[in-house]
Amino acid sequence: MNTVIFRTIAPLIVATMLVFSIYVCLRGHNEPGGGFIGGLIAASAIAVLGMASSAAQARKALYFDPLSIAGFGVLLAGLTGLVSVFNNSPFMTSIWLYLELGEATVPLSTPLLFDIGVYLVVFGTISSIALGLESNEGEEP
């Protein structure tokens, strides 16, 4: 698998997939997509990276430990649910905020943050599984 062509092209593929995954995640509320799919795409990207170079290098490229990313995702998703408490509403009531930036209106909302949390959990968990299996015997996962 470690052909020169693959190793050369892999970063390109990975970068494209990561950008695409974020796009899929963000548009999920109105078009097909969402945190689950985005996270899976991003995790596949990391798996490709791990295969092209090595699991250790993929980890280094990620900077954060993938499981920590997943943990942060769970935390983020849980906290977005708590935001509504300040609004005197039940847990996980959604709150919307429309930002006027010149001509465009950017809708921000707690479900969006929640979806990003889902994205991070799926991404972190599955890439940590993939990298764990890709790493070799001797190497500490």
Partner: peptide, 17 residues
């Protein structure tokens, strides 16, 4: 089903390992 697929995959990975 969407969540079932993802959870199913996690379960599969766990069993595999």
């Amino acid at each position: 089903i969407l969540t079932a697929i993802v959870i199913g995959f996690a379960m599969f990975s766990f069993l595999l390992v």
